[in-house]
């Protein structure tokens, strides 16, 4: 059992250090969640004092890499919330299919499960050839994983159930080759993806998109930061383009919501 814990003031000190030394700004993240992640790491890595923890984060670049990986939440799933993917398949993507070219931004893509799910739906709608998926994350390590298209076989049973519920039209196992404990996904899917680091807190708009997907990222931000990110998305979505959020996230209290129309009951909004 560890006795030493970290108090709110110390969390603030660490977050300030990180901004100063590495340029990552976590000050507007939801406090309870980031505190839990940092406290968890402190005990997981068996630090004996706050001073030692702070020193290591500030001075050991290798350790900071680990810190970044551990305090950002990278849990994700393929075809998470099947009803969301049904709405993409039946409502959103067929509309975008009338465009000559489809640009999509998956913001906060983590290890890529949602980008791959999206690519599979595009392929089944015969739209993948004219689509480009920009998949970005704050954390370079998860992007390296995403690029490889390798996912643990343990999860594939769940994913293929999700896929069926999401009205997938193929045999899910056609999309990957199982190799020991890993499933290697079809290169044809990755050929239409561009992976890049992007920090929603500090980086700007870099293109115009017809669809932005950002699911279960904003729950980690406080309200002010959420609104800043919505403004960034607003500057990056074409007229009549779509913004898709996680199942517990909402545009509701954002002042510009009047320029958007909700798509059915899903957390998808269309820019008017």
């Amino acid at each position: 059992m560890f006795n030493e814990t970290i108090d709110n003031e110390q969390i603030q000190i660490i977050l300030n250090d990180i901004l100063e030394v590495y340029g990552y700004d976590f000050l507007e993240y939801s406090h309870a969640s980031i505190k839990r992640r940092i406290t968890r790491l402190f005990s997981l890595d068996k630090f004996v004092s706050f001073a030692e923890f702070r020193y290591t984060i500030k001075n050991d670049k290798q350790y900071f890499k680990r810190f970044l990986e551990e305090i950002t939440v990278n849990v994700t799933e393929m075809f998470r919330d099947p009803s969301f993917y049904r709405a993409l398949r039946n409502d959103v993507l067929p509309t975008l299919g009338t465009y000559p070219f489809i640009r999509i931004w998956v913001a906060g893509c983590s290890t890529g499960e949602e980008a791959f799910s999206l690519a599979i739906v595009l392929k089944e709608l015969n739209l993948l050839h004219k689509s480009l998926i920009y998949a970005t994350d704050i954390n370079p390590a998860v992007l390296e994983k995403a690029k490889k298209g390798l996912f643990s076989l343990n999860h594939l049973k769940q994913y293929s159930e999700n896929y069926l519920q999401a009205e997938g039209t193929n045999d899910f196992s056609n999309y990957y080759i199982a190799n020991y404990s890993l499933a290697k996904f079809d290169q044809a899917l990755t050929s239409k993806m561009i992976f890049s680091t992007h920090n929603l807190v500090s980086d700007h708009s870099f293109n115009e998109f017809q669809l932005i997907m950002c699911r279960n990222v904003l729950i980690y931000f406080d309200k002010d930061l959420q609104h800043k990110v919505f403004n960034l998305f607003d500057n990056s979505i074409e007229k009549l383009g779509y913004l898709a959020l996680g199942s517990k996230e909402s545009l509701d209290f954002w002042p510009k919501i009047k320029d958007y129309k909700r798509v059915k009951t899903e957390k998808i909004w269309r820019k008017l």
Binding site: N8, H31, A32, S33, R36, V75, I219, Y220, G246, K248
Partner: peptide, 30 residues
Amino acid sequence: LLIEENQSFSLDYSEKINYSRPSIDVTFQS
């Protein structure tokens, strides 16, 4: 489900704890 200092809720989709999400430990601690 987490509780913020200003007595509002935060949600978190991180790893399951004790095979559970929501985890009782997380909310009790917070």
